[in-house]
Simulated assay, not measured.
Amino acid sequence: MRRQAQSASSVDRADLEVLADQLGRAPRGVAGIAARCVCGRPTVVRTLPRLEDGTPFPTTYYLTHPAAVRGCSTLEAEHLMEELNDELGRDTTLAAAYARAHEDYLARRRELGQVAQIDGVSAGGMPTRVKCLHALVAHSLAVGPGLNPVGDRVLDLLRERALWDPSSCAC
Rank of each mutant, 00 (worst) to 15 (best):
Gly151Glu: 03
Arg129Lys: 13
Glu160Asp: 12
Asp119Trp: 02
Ala162Trp: 01
Ala123Trp: 06
Ala101Leu: 03
His102Arg: 08
Arg2Lys: 07
Leu19Ala: 12
Ser10Thr: 13
Cys72His: 07
Ser10Met: 10
Met126Glu: 05
Glu52Ile: 04
Asp165Gly: 03
Lys131Ala: 09
Gly113Lys: 10
Leu84Arg: 00
Val69Phe: 05
Ala20Gly: 14
Asn148Ser: 15
Cys171Val: 04
Thr47Phe: 01
Leu106Ala: 11
Val115Phe: 10
Asp165Cys: 06
Leu163Gln: 02
Asp119Arg: 14
Pro49Tyr: 05
Glu87Asp: 10
Tyr105Met: 00
Pro49Trp: 03
Arg70Ile: 00
Met126Gly: 05
His134Tyr: 01
Thr43Pro: 01
Asp12Val: 08
Thr59Gly: 07
Arg108Ile: 08
Arg41Gln: 15
Gly89Glu: 05
Ala34Gln: 04
Gln114Gly: 08
Pro49Asn: 09
Gly40Val: 06
Arg70Tyr: 01
Pro49Phe: 04
Arg110Cys: 07
Gln22Asp: 15
Asp15Phe: 01
Val137Asn: 06
Pro27Met: 10
Arg50Gln: 14
Ala34Phe: 03
Leu136Asn: 07
Ser167Glu: 13
Gly124Pro: 06
Gly124His: 06
Glu52Ala: 14
Arg153Ser: 14
Gly151Tyr: 09
Gly113His: 09
Val115Glu: 12
Ala77Leu: 04
Val11Gly: 08
Leu157Ile: 00
Leu16Glu: 15
Cys39Gln: 05
Val18Gly: 05
Arg153Gln: 14
Asp86Thr: 08
Gly151Asp: 06
Gly144Phe: 03
Gly124Asp: 07
Gly29Arg: 11
Ser9Gln: 12
Asn85His: 01
Ala107Thr: 12
Leu106Glu: 07
Val38Cys: 11
Tyr62Met: 06
Asn85Thr: 04
Glu78Asn: 11
Leu112Ser: 12
